[in-house]
Nucleic acid binder design. Sequence first.
DNA 1: CTGCACGCTTCCCCAGGGGTAACCACCCAC
DNA 2: GTGGGTGGTTACCCCTGGGGAAGCGTGCAG
Lengths: 117, 117
Amino acid sequence: MTVGRRAGSYVCGVDAAMDVIGGKWKVLILWALHMRPHRFGELRRELPGVTEKVLAAQLRELEADGIVHREVYEEVPPRVEYSLTPRGETLNEALEPLGAWGKANVLAEPVPAEPIG
Amino acid sequence: MTVGRRAGSYVCGVDAAMDVIGGKWKVLILWALHMRPHRFGELRRELPGVTEKVLAAQLRELEADGIVHREVYEEVPPRVEYSLTPRGETLNEALEPLGAWGKANVLAEPVPAEPIG
DNA sequence: CTGCACGCTTCCCCAGGGGTAACCACCCAC
DNA sequence: GTGGGTGGTTACCCCTGGGGAAGCGTGCAG
């Protein structure tokens, strides 16, 4: 398994990780799969503005990097479920501090002064 | 202070943070400034392949996002020093788990099969 | 006078990641 | 037969981020 597309040319771990999560929708996919497995259409509906082509491409890259697992059910209407691999779950855990930072420093921006509590 | 360029349209904290660190060289800049303040030329020499134009642009964005501090010394040969703001330092701390993940899962790749344990 | 070093800025150009839309194969409901 | 929903693929286009190279203003070295 080769993780990342720039194999071998990384300066440091963060650099390498950025290559894996660098797609426009990847962290949102991880965020969605963090909750529960998703079907393709579910993901598409939850990511505002993503197209099938791009979603499929990002999922394929994440799959190639061993982050998501793709399970095909040979059923009457074809069903495919995407879930996090163990490696994907550890990645999501590693992203949590970053998410907290973003929430505190980017999302919660219009803070005039001290929070009340 | 408005952090990020997509202000207000973020899905979650990770998404927002990715907007701040999304440039090609930004995490490497953070990584370098993590150690000590750097002059422009120092940074350029430490980042293999970055051009002045791009380095200046990334630094400006990081400055606009309150991540790096730019100190100009009105000296004989103009001198400029870049350092992390407190917010930049917390960002770097939030990136550490991601760096560890990348080091373990991307850099240390030649793992043949199952881990022994 | 020329050149270099500093820390940029400006202009131009290119690749590629992402967006748009159509199509596919299957089955069911209408 | 038509349309909708499943999960895609393919072809094409476009925009933006990034790369290349040169200029700028100052002062010193040669």
